[in-house]
Simulated scan of single mutants.
Amino acid sequence: MKLGFIVNPIAGMGGRVGLKGTDGPEVLEKAKSLGALPESPEKAKKALKELLPIKDRLEIYTYPGAMGEDEAIEVGFQPIVLQKDKEDFGPENTEEAAKKMIEKEVDLILFAGGDGTARNIYNAIGTAVPVVGIPAGVKIHSGVYANHPKAGGELALKYLQNEEMKIKEAEVMDIDEEAFRGGVVTAKLYGYMNIPLEPELMQATKSGGLGTEEAALDGIADRIIEEMEENPDTFFIIGSGTSTRPIMEKLDLPNTLLGIDIVKNKELIGSDVNEKEILDTIDGHKAKIVVTVIGGQGYIFGRGNQQISAEVIKKVGKENIFIVAPKNKILSLEGRPLLVDTGNDEVNSMFNGYMKVINTYYSETIEKVEGL
């Protein structure tokens, strides 16, 4: 069995520091200056560990250093490094790696990154071989990613061991990061790649809500503002998304649609804040978090709101989290649970069970939540 293994080691670094991605060298340098640390290598290792049961029967082809070699060796594999004299993390290297893996006739490519990484691999291989994405980026709109890193490894193992496993085409989506930082989402379909058909382990393509939600969102905003009035001197951390935007609009405050804002006594305390700014602001004070659900996928933490990190959640406490989502957005999940993927197993497991979701001013539902 032959596996191609690619890691984009800088994927996701812009999340906690509020940069909404790391596309481009200038943005990467800014992320580093703000204290961003690599997260993708650890997620890649978590996936690769699931393949240890077939270690003696598996050839892993990868690229030098942090692009896969280091992670594979640390897990316990002896990978075949395809380009030993080069260690660069640019998109052209990802594409080059994928092309070389096709030449080696790999059975599957397992890669860690975000939507930009998926685009690079699509550019190189199209539908030549199936792929499984390990979610590690800030932007995860594409349908080629597993629900979480461990699921990526589980799916790769299943596919490599089962020649009869069906495959299907899944969308490769990406957005304009520069516009994204300015509060505008311009998602574009770039093409399709083949993935193993295992819906329980793969996440859906991100989708918006269904139908007219204006009245529901208006009621949700009133409900949260009442909570603010009943909890003076409490910091409210307002998550990203259109479902939380009406809260800020009703307060007549500027809203970072795709970032995180902090409100206290109905006044704006912090706009488009990063993880460190949140932690510094709430240190020693009462705080609550307001987040919504990603339509079609179900994530409440770990996709697009990495600034609300595991450390932030631990400081605030699960009991001080409001989940808001119109009923149509919940229905779009078709019975699947809400998901939490903070990168911290302890915090993820805190959420296993059921939580209340505010659907309108008057109504709420109890939904199953799964920590990944």
Results as ranks from 00 to 15, higher is better:
residue 161 Q to Y: 09
residue 341 D to I: 02
residue 80 I to D: 08
residue 197 L to Y: 15
residue 216 A to C: 10
residue 245 R to Q: 12
residue 33 S to I: 01
residue 37 L to A: 05
residue 353 G to W: 05
residue 224 I to D: 07
residue 147 N to C: 09
residue 107 D to M: 05
residue 129 V to F: 07
residue 135 P to E: 06
residue 353 G to K: 01
residue 107 D to C: 05
residue 14 G to M: 10
residue 108 L to N: 12
residue 213 E to H: 12
residue 185 V to R: 07
residue 83 Q to M: 15
residue 214 E to N: 02
residue 207 S to H: 14
residue 139 K to L: 02
residue 68 G to F: 07
residue 296 G to M: 13
residue 55 K to C: 11
residue 231 N to Q: 13
residue 260 I to G: 09
residue 86 K to C: 10
residue 12 G to Q: 13
residue 161 Q to S: 15
residue 317 G to M: 04
residue 41 P to C: 00
residue 205 T to M: 14
residue 173 M to L: 15
residue 185 V to L: 09
residue 14 G to S: 09
residue 47 A to N: 15
residue 358 I to E: 11
residue 364 E to V: 02
residue 260 I to M: 05
residue 49 K to N: 08
residue 323 I to F: 02
residue 258 L to K: 05
residue 252 D to K: 03
residue 229 E to T: 10
residue 169 E to Q: 05
residue 95 E to C: 07
residue 274 N to S: 12
residue 264 K to D: 05
residue 338 L to K: 01
residue 294 I to D: 14
residue 347 V to S: 11
residue 193 M to S: 03
residue 246 P to G: 06
residue 174 D to G: 01
residue 177 E to T: 10
residue 32 K to F: 01
residue 27 V to A: 04
residue 367 E to S: 13
residue 220 I to W: 06
residue 277 E to F: 01
residue 311 E to K: 00
residue 220 I to G: 12
residue 126 G to C: 01
residue 59 E to V: 07
residue 66 A to C: 07
residue 224 I to L: 06
residue 340 V to M: 06
residue 31 A to E: 06
residue 182 G to F: 11
residue 221 A to G: 03
residue 279 L to A: 14
residue 311 E to N: 06
residue 175 I to T: 11
residue 106 V to Q: 15
residue 272 D to G: 06
residue 87 E to W: 00
residue 197 L to M: 02
residue 102 I to A: 11
residue 103 E to D: 14
residue 363 S to I: 08
residue 147 N to I: 11
residue 280 D to L: 00
residue 317 G to C: 03
residue 177 E to M: 03
residue 17 V to T: 14
residue 339 L to N: 13
residue 243 S to P: 06
residue 8 N to W: 09
residue 113 G to M: 05
residue 238 I to A: 05
residue 282 I to Y: 00
residue 208 G to S: 11
residue 189 L to N: 09
residue 232 P to E: 04
residue 263 V to A: 04
residue 123 N to P: 12
residue 157 L to S: 07
residue 228 M to V: 03
residue 199 P to G: 05
residue 321 I to Q: 07
residue 174 D to H: 01
residue 148 H to P: 07
residue 150 K to H: 04
residue 372 L to C: 14
residue 222 D to G: 01
residue 83 Q to I: 13
residue 297 Q to I: 04
residue 338 L to E: 08
residue 105 E to V: 01
